[in-house]
Amino acid sequence: MEIRYYISLAVALFCIGIIGVLTRRNAIIIFMCVELMLNAVNLLLVAFSKMHAATAMGKAFPGMVSDAQIFVFFIMVVAAAEVSVGLAIIVMMYRNTHSTDVNFLNRLKN
């Protein structure tokens, strides 16, 4: 497959994530959209790593190919940690306001 399909797919997923963040008010949904965007990026990384694997350069330096996948692995690690903290915050917020509406959190204004 050509790389452009993968890039287009990743961009589409990413933009769907962005639209989700922009249009929804539920903090959990927004959070999920962020995860979706992360996954779009992960997919792109893997696709590029495999693109390089097909080239002569990739064959000469196999580390270059696997580096990208290690990166994806670390992104997942960080995402997992982020989710645990983020969800804790959302839960706390829900306990305080009985809502997950991000617009309740407009205290930044003052």
Partner: peptide
């Protein structure tokens, strides 16, 4: 990069063996 192809169903870079060693 648009026209470059992606290696499908092939290559052992993504296998746990290789990645584990790398990691």
């Amino acid at each position: 990069v648009v026209d470059k192809t992606v290696q499908m169903n092939d290559g052992d870079h993504g296998l746990i063996n290789n990645l584990g060693k790398e990691l």
